[in-house]
Amino acid sequence: MAVLTYREALNDALREEMERDDSIFIIGEEVGEYDGAYKVTKGLLEQFGEWRVRDAPIAELGFAGLGVGAAMAGLRPIVEFMTWNFALLAIDEVVNAAAKMFQMSGGQYNVPIVFRGPGGAALQLAAQHSQSPEPWYSYVPGLKVIAPATAKDAKGLLKSAVRDNDPVVFIESEIMYNLVRDEVPEEEYVTPIGKAEVKREGSDVTVVCHSKMVHQALAAARALEKEDIDVEVLDLRTVRPLDVDAVVASVKKTNRAVVAEEGWPMCNVGAQVVDDIQREAFDSLDAPVARVNGLDVPMPYAKNLEKLVTPNADHVAAAVRHVCYAD
């Protein structure tokens, strides 16, 4: 096992997949000569050349649609958005074209494409650069939506996404690129899409989370050990399709749940998880499910206000105590 950063794991996944299958190409802003705005594509232009690592104009709608057309014609494009904030310019191609093409054509044209880039808040980037896109895409049947929390999952899931025959929205994290580092197997592996993973076993409360909030939940779990509260951390990893079986199994064991996510509360992933829990595990609940979210405002710039908006381990811990009636 080698310890890799989240960024290095993604870079390895891209390189290994491109070496394996020459129908894969990457297109996006700064992916080539600049080595990627966040260096996820570092070294790939040199290894694979400009037709496989294509620096795009700042035209998100255009190059996202180019990817969809290329996928329909038989290639396996990876479209990098410098951040998911800019992908809103391209959401028509993701939702109206990629997600619907297979059904609209009566099963003739599947679209094997990965749209990837960082989402979520970073450090004082203000309203237009600090938002979590998972709910916008997980609303749409036809898309698969992945948001990994560890380097190991980032690599294994990106490889699965690239091999998948349907459109995949792959949401990374600017903050995690460097800060998250963990053991990554040196041998070939893929991580299945649609499977959650218990990142920490516990018996008292289940915290259902994904992406950055997995690390906040693990920190909260460590803190709560001192209070004799044993927290299970369930990392969804994929938010569509959603591993309801894993959620239900964990809640049936712990009888209490907290759903934690970085973005806004209205219609988010957690809202769906709460519904899945009440439909399938209502009789197992000893307390109402609690939610931890970002506050319901556009992200302010000021450091103190950004901190106030962003959910952290203390918020998760407080929610856990609440569902244990220990607050």
């Binding site: 709608l61 255009g62 190059f63 996202a64 649609g65 180019l66 990817g67 969809v68 057309g69 290329a70 996928a71 329909m72 014609a73 038989g74 290639l75 494009p77 028509d92 191609e93 109206n96 074209a97 093409m101 609209m104 054509s105 009566g106 003739q108 044209y109």
Partner: peptide, 27 residues
């Protein structure tokens, strides 16, 4: 749509199929 004829739709959002054609050209 008819994949056997390389007839790739049939798209209902005005203008959004032009990038698709560019993707076919890229391929």
């Amino acid at each position: 749509f008819d994949k056997t004829l390389n007839f790739m739709g049939g798209h209902g959002i005005v203008g959004s199929h032009l990038p698709l054609a560019v993707g076919v050209g890229y391929t």
